[in-house]
């Protein structure tokens, strides 16, 4: 008994084994996941927020969220009441983008990020806090990298 404890604690106390130990835990949990899928516990809920519709004829395909500039699109948000201007941002296209649509039927395939493209109100408004946190993470990571980089320079 004592030997086992010693042995385990010897593995645990080496910081180089940390990721390996954690990886093992993740593998165990993933195995539990497989079992619960087999048991039918994990089923896809078909009633999802912000469902994706694909309109192959739209020049904005596959990023067509519906709506046209200054006309709100139909959005299925969690709490639509919290954002009265819902649907407007998604519907908006810059004049330049509007012009391009008429020329190119494949405007959407450039993953255009015109407001109203990939960056719609999920990212801007209704779930904007996510994006704020995400940019803050990037900000902090860059600060760390730059701090170390610059300190090395001295």
């Amino acid at each position: 008994m004592q030997l086992i404890i010693r042995k385990v604690s010897r593995i645990l106390q080496n910081h180089n084994n940390l990721t390996a130990v954690y990886a093992l835990v993740v593998i165990i949990v993933a195995a539990i996941g497989l079992i619960s899928i087999a048991a039918g516990e994990i089923t896809f809920e078909k009633d999802q927020l912000y469902p994706k519709t694909i309109n192959p004829d739209s020049p904005l395909n596959p990023y067509d969220r519906g709506g046209s500039p200054f006309v709100p699109a139909d959005i299925k948000a969690q709490y639509p009441g919290n954002f009265p201007a819902i649907g407007y941002i998604t519907g908006y296209l810059s004049p330049f983008a509007t012009a391009l649509i008429k020329i190119s039927p494949y405007f959407g395939t450039t993953i255009v990020a015109h407001p109203g493209g990939i960056l719609d109100e999920i990212l801007y408004a209704t779930r904007g806090l996510d994006t704020i946190v995400e940019t803050s993470i990037l900000f902090v990571a860059f600060t760390t990298a730059m701090f170390l980089f610059r300190r090395d320079e001295e």
Binding site: A77, Y79, N82, F83, T126, G128, L129
Partner: peptide, 10 residues
């Protein structure tokens, strides 16, 4: 006690 709505994130 208190809630602070930010769109979908409350």
């Amino acid at each position: 006690l208190f809630s602070l709505p930010f769109g979908d994130i409350v």
